[in-house]
Design a protein around this nucleic acid. Sequence first.
DNA 1: TACGTGTACTATACTAGTTAGTACACTTGG
DNA 2: CCAAGTGTACTAACTAGTATAGTACACGTA
Lengths: 120, 120
Amino acid sequence: MDPAELGHLAYYERLVLKIKEQIVRGVLQPGDKLPSVRDMARSEQLNPNTVAKAYKQLELDGVMEVQPGRGSFIAQRPRKMSQTEKVELKNRFDALVVTATAQGVDEATLKTWLAAHFEG
Amino acid sequence: MDPAELGHLAYYERLVLKIKEQIVRGVLQPGDKLPSVRDMARSEQLNPNTVAKAYKQLELDGVMEVQPGRGSFIAQRPRKMSQTEKVELKNRFDALVVTATAQGVDEATLKTWLAAHFEG
DNA sequence: TACGTGTACTATACTAGTTAGTACACTTGG
DNA sequence: CCAAGTGTACTAACTAGTATAGTACACGTA
């Protein structure tokens, strides 16, 4: 999955997704240090504020630990989601499944899409 | 799934989702006539323009057939998605799975969420 | 001919997102 | 200690999307 294709997402959301993908794939490991807000802004061609917003979102999501003056690091373990967060995530998931189904995507295809994330 | 809980969606998007859900659940059948833009606006407490935008989106998605002067009807069959549309839908699906996984939702839970749409 | 239908258009208002620039408090290394 | 690097906070301006209001038009039907 290439976040660059996700043209409908805001820049900071694309960066959040990109980092989360690297975490899921193991490219980024717990404790790893991320580039500073300014370095990431330079390499990603973004405004430092936009990167800061992405980092803040990642911290809010519990996958990154931010230490002012030291840097930003991948969390040892993703913070346990609250019930509200879990419900919200399920709502988004359900909405997407309904949309796909209404437009003719069948059950087998969706199961394939899902399973692809857990192979290897 | 109750679209009323999806506070992050725009009004017209919530209406689109609500109608798609009724299609998937069989509450709305192919050929069924939907309320006019003005009636729907009254019953849903929305501006007619907002409803019109939802109807236009539904027609664009191929699940509704609009006949100016006659009314709006559920399509006999969802229009076959273009390759671009399918890729876009898969991208959104993948992004959501990555987000969920990064925040600690495991494979079994996601499979349960998906399967729930195809029971009964 | 009336009426209801979807549609188009203008105008206004509000919100979110992005960029730019500046400044501050904190931690680290020389 | 001090300079450099860190995340953060703040204002300002611009863009895009959303929602509302009102008006008008073209079409199909009874």
